[in-house]
Amino acid sequence: MMEVMLTLAVVSILLMLTVQSAPKNNGHTVDREVDNIAFFFQVAQTNALNTKQAHVVEFDRTKHRIMIKSGYGEALETYTLSTCRILQGGLSGFLYKSNGDTNAFGTVRFDCMGEPVSFVFQIQKGRFRIER
């Protein structure tokens, strides 16, 4: 019985040391955050199309969050960034029209754990592309 307990203790200590020194896989975390941001923009566009009302997307650079508001300024959705940070410059916000088009074109830049990520918006059909 003592041998079994001693073996379990040694294995437990080795596992603790191994788990603590394992490198974190930040690539998947950044990928998930970028996907969530893209999904959030698509939600805003879909809501504008479904309700036939304009929806405003605003970027809060101090609290690092993205907000969807109705055309009347009512807050509908908020996404707080966990991995990425919104960088200064670029779009401060834009509007998805009731037909899904955007009213502005430009770029929103993020710093995702040292990796630069840009969302480039086009006016036609509310399209955007992600540059990494």
Rank of each mutant, 00 (worst) to 15 (best):
V56A: 05
G73M: 02
D111S: 13
F110C: 11
S21W: 05
T46I: 08
L17I: 13
N103F: 07
T29G: 07
T83E: 01
Q124H: 04
L15W: 09
R61S: 02
G90S: 09
V108T: 06
V57K: 01
F121T: 07
N103V: 00
N47G: 04
E131S: 04
I68T: 09
H28L: 14
K63I: 13
M2I: 06
K52Y: 02
Q20V: 05
T78M: 02
C84I: 01
I13A: 13
T51Y: 12
L14A: 14
I37N: 03
L91Y: 00
T80M: 00
I37G: 06
F110T: 10
Q42P: 15
N50G: 05
N50L: 09
L95D: 06
T7F: 04
L95K: 05
M5A: 05
P23A: 01
Q122D: 11
A54P: 01
M16F: 12
K52I: 05
N36Q: 13
Y96H: 02
Q53W: 00
F105V: 12
F121E: 08
G71Q: 12
R85N: 14
Q45Y: 00
V34T: 12
P116K: 10
F40Q: 04
L6F: 04
I123P: 02
T107D: 12
V56K: 01
V57A: 01
E33D: 14
V19L: 11
V56F: 15
T102F: 02
S21F: 03
P116L: 08
S92F: 02
A75D: 11
I130A: 02
H28V: 10
R32Y: 01
F41E: 03
S118E: 10
T51L: 12
I13N: 09
H55S: 03
R132V: 07
L49T: 08
T46N: 03
E33S: 07
F119N: 03
E33Y: 10
E3S: 11
A44P: 11
R129E: 04
F105L: 11
K69A: 00
I13W: 00
M2L: 09
G73F: 07
S98W: 04
V56I: 14
E131N: 09
M67F: 10
H64S: 12
V11T: 13
R127E: 00
R127N: 02
E74W: 15
M1T: 13
V30T: 07
F59C: 07
G100F: 10
A44F: 03
T7Q: 10
F105C: 08
N99V: 15
Q124S: 06
S118Y: 15
R85I: 13
S12M: 12
V117C: 07
L6V: 15
S118W: 15
A48Y: 03
T29H: 02
T78A: 01
R85G: 09
L17Y: 00
E74C: 12
E115W: 00
A44M: 04
G114W: 08
